[in-house]
Simulated assay, not measured.
Amino acid sequence: MTRTFIALEMDANIQRHLNGFIQQVAPVLPTLRWVDPQGIHLTLAFLGELDDERLASASAAAQKASQLCTPFSYSLTQPGIFGSPRQPRVLWMGIEEVSGSLKRLHRLLQQELEQSDFETETRPFSPHLTLARGKAPLNATEQATLQKILAQKNPNAILAGPYPVKHIHVMKSELSRSGATYTCLQKYPLQYK
């Protein structure tokens, strides 16, 4: 069984910028568990544990979706949270992609997965890059710091982009005490003509 998801992997340039943001913010929000910038990706579909046959079907769906979408670029926007400011579940960096290609790719992938009898997400697609996770409430100082971070316009560490997207990736996730390790199983070029 393979714990599988389909995503856009980040290039070294965006990892460097996100690492800069994390290095700035992590010391003032120590309660949060920060992700390794090398593992940051934009998830398009999380599929869970798959046997070899289902993994092949997921890969085929990713390949078909990739053939229906052209390469595109996106930019980073502002940080945000899922959950309450008192106890955020996730601190994330937002994504802006003005052409609509990212949402189109997501929609095409969902359609291909549904045709292969995969359950797909019913919530609206909210593209983001997870930077940290929280389990415990923040203290008053951390809550105030988080509010300042969320209110900043264009934090210095993320003034960069646009970032090109040329491939879709079928990924394997292995969980351990030290965190998740990700391995690319398949990589398909975006190539709609």
Rank of each mutant, 00 (worst) to 15 (best):
L109S: 06
L68A: 12
L190A: 11
S99Q: 10
D117R: 14
H41A: 10
A7V: 04
I158A: 01
V165G: 02
N154W: 13
S84A: 04
L129D: 08
Y182E: 06
T31G: 04
A26K: 13
L55K: 03
F125V: 11
Q78P: 00
K187E: 15
P164D: 12
H167D: 14
L18K: 02
M93N: 08
R133D: 03
R3E: 07
R104G: 00
K135P: 08
G80A: 06
M10H: 09
Q115M: 13
T130K: 09
D36I: 05
P189Y: 10
L32H: 05
G80K: 00
T130I: 03
V28E: 03
T77I: 00
Q143C: 11
T31E: 03
F21A: 06
A151H: 12
R89Q: 14
P79V: 01
E174Q: 13
T4I: 09
E96Q: 14
S178T: 14
A60M: 00
L108R: 15
V25N: 03
Q67Y: 00
S84I: 03
T130F: 06
R16H: 14
Q191I: 01
T130N: 07
K193C: 10
P162F: 05
P71R: 01
S101C: 01
Q191G: 10
E96R: 14
G48N: 05
P124C: 08
T141S: 14
G48L: 07
N13W: 09
A60R: 04
L50V: 02
K148D: 15
T43V: 09
H128E: 07
E114L: 13
D52K: 08
A132T: 03
E174T: 13
G134F: 13
R89I: 08
A45L: 03
D11N: 13
T181S: 15
A140S: 15
S173D: 03
A26L: 01
H167M: 06
L131F: 10
E174P: 00
T4W: 05
L146T: 04
Q143W: 02
N19E: 15
L91D: 04
T77Q: 08
I22P: 04
Q186P: 00
L185S: 09
L8F: 12
L150R: 10
I14P: 05
G134T: 08
V165Q: 01
R107F: 00
S66C: 06
N139M: 00
T120V: 15
S176M: 11
R104P: 00
N13P: 00
Y188C: 10
A157S: 13
T77C: 00
H167A: 02
M1R: 12
Q78V: 00
H128R: 12
K135H: 14
L129S: 09
L190Y: 10
L159V: 13
A151Q: 11
T122E: 13
T43D: 07
L150T: 05
K187W: 02
A56M: 12
R54L: 11
Y182I: 02
D117V: 12
L129W: 12
G179L: 10
G179N: 11
H169I: 06
Y163H: 06
Y74V: 01
R3N: 10
E97F: 01
L185K: 12
L47F: 07
A26V: 08
R86I: 06
W92G: 08
E96N: 14
V25E: 04
